[in-house]
Design a protein around this nucleic acid. Sequence first.
DNA 1: TTGTAAGCGTTATCAT
DNA 2: ATGATAACGCTTACAA
Lengths: 363, 363
Amino acid sequence: MSEDTNEAPGAPNVPSGPTAGPNVTLEEIARAAGVSPSTVSRILNGSARVLPEKQRAVEEAIARFNYRPNVLARSLASGRTETIGVLTQAVSSPFYAEWLRGIEDALAEPGFTPIFVSSRWNVVDEKARLEEFIARRVDGIILLHAQLDEATLAGYSRYAPMLVLGRSVQNGMTLAGLPIDNLQGARDATRHLIEQGHREIAFIAGPSSHEDAIERLDGYRIALEEAGIGFDADLVEQGDYLETGGLAAMERLMARRPMFTAVFCANDQTAYGARLAMFRRGVRVPEDVSLVGFDDLPTSSYMTPPLTTVRQPTYEIGRLAAQGIVQMIRKQPVALSPIPLTLVTRETTRRIGASLSPGDEHR
Amino acid sequence: MSEDTNEAPGAPNVPSGPTAGPNVTLEEIARAAGVSPSTVSRILNGSARVLPEKQRAVEEAIARFNYRPNVLARSLASGRTETIGVLTQAVSSPFYAEWLRGIEDALAEPGFTPIFVSSRWNVVDEKARLEEFIARRVDGIILLHAQLDEATLAGYSRYAPMLVLGRSVQNGMTLAGLPIDNLQGARDATRHLIEQGHREIAFIAGPSSHEDAIERLDGYRIALEEAGIGFDADLVEQGDYLETGGLAAMERLMARRPMFTAVFCANDQTAYGARLAMFRRGVRVPEDVSLVGFDDLPTSSYMTPPLTTVRQPTYEIGRLAAQGIVQMIRKQPVALSPIPLTLVTRETTRRIGASLSPGDEHR
DNA sequence: TTGTAAGCGTTATCAT
DNA sequence: ATGATAACGCTTACAA
């Protein structure tokens, strides 16, 4: 029983005594403390009152053997894993980072553990990752930007309650969506430019496969139309939500179309690329061209000049999602209202018109 | 047995027949296919030859019932979880993102699943997360920048093999370190500035609690001394590896010390902050002051101007770590040599000296 | 309050 | 090649 003698350098806290280390079981603790396994279990889970003396004996044994309950066995027996599958499109994207932080923090409170995976913007991977979650018997699933269609999601939600961020779905007991009002955000941003006197406003779009990219384009278009300016397809370039795409799109735009006083980018990463393209050509921001992004990534306020952009309360959204999924697991009703976005005006936009008045620079 | 009738909207692929859905077990599959559980298990794992007809019958039943093996039960029985605990200091840090991507990609090949958690630069959390890994019976652990001392790590490594990134430890069978040569990187960066004619080179340091921050400071100091310039504590400001810290440090520096022609920052985030501080004061980069960062975050090449910095091959490091831990799990020997860093010269540094010659701008 | 015993869904060791 | 059967380490009625 105690053939557990792998020489590890300076193992601390681990008694060199009997069955120390990794493979101690609840049963051995029970034996050592002179109680039954169920008593140990009860103490571990606080699921019933136990005589103080036994309590102490058990706790002493746990400490002495450095015992850690086996989560697997616990979950198998109880049917609960206290685990939430979180599916991102890319764990490493700066955009998801804040969401993850919010989720992680909010999940820690009720004692759930998140499992983060990425599906790389790929529907096949997305399915595969969801099935892994199910095989792992997660208690709930949070999807950041699901690509799968609603019917498929609903099917998977039979296995575990699912919450989809950035998407509206038919809310039910096991499937819910937390939509983000991209259209409104894009409209506000465009309006801001219009109010600043801009009329030739270019747009660098995100991938048309993304629902939110389409919404942002729509918001831009609607604001233009509302202002009586009208949408001009010639002012729109295709990006890919990445810096490289923004750079290339901006280069094409400048080569093709010298007349515009502002550029609205479908996300901040695109704006970074566009900004560099302008820098390369000696186009000044905001003196020559105003620039607006979308998302408000943490670094955007450190761009030079700091980027005007549409802020998503990402950390808070993450928290909301985490709280929501926990409620769904507990079969409590969840009310999820669309997340409003707010424009944060920083220093890449400038009033134009009448004469070249100083505009916004003084602050 | 088939009280499994929760109404889910449009569940696909799930037969509305007998025991469809979540709770199908291996035993039911066996019954349906007219074989024993062991046979099903063998087919699932390919662990033995089975008659083609039974094989087909079982596969058919699996498909029909949409059966997914319970990972928990499997792990409990087999003692293997095929899971790697990955401890980061902050999942959401742009710095760790690329490491995670490398780890995730490389782990997918041998079929391991990473579990990412953050310890928030906090030793207490770090211990707690490690113990969770152990309770989850992960097969191996990768630590990104462990803060715990080596003896403690060695103790935990009794439970599962551990690989520490960015740190050198006494390499053994169950504990290994993959050091990163921060000192050399910092020395190269400083030398570059010296070669460009700079002599008054300021340094914004990282938190002194971080081993790598100290190494970077040392590299700076050594390069200075090697060049006969000598270290001047008055040119060093304290940062915190974050943008805010860089901003504040730079402001203090400018307020205190007008004489310097270059600033070397302990990491890119610090450089972003410093760059903004200079922008605010009308100090031009690189015309007035040269700027060098460290890490080469993805956005650094999109800074304006693009940031000269020390590049860590982060994605590759992540891959190496993943491959290393898998080898350790398989009890194969691992050879881990320190990762060299390379300076990438972009546009925030400029040659000075003789006269104000144009220098590097032409490219 | 405490103990006994029957699962939880697999894998693995035996025989056959 | 296949099937019983005993683990794996815990939870949870059910009794006492």
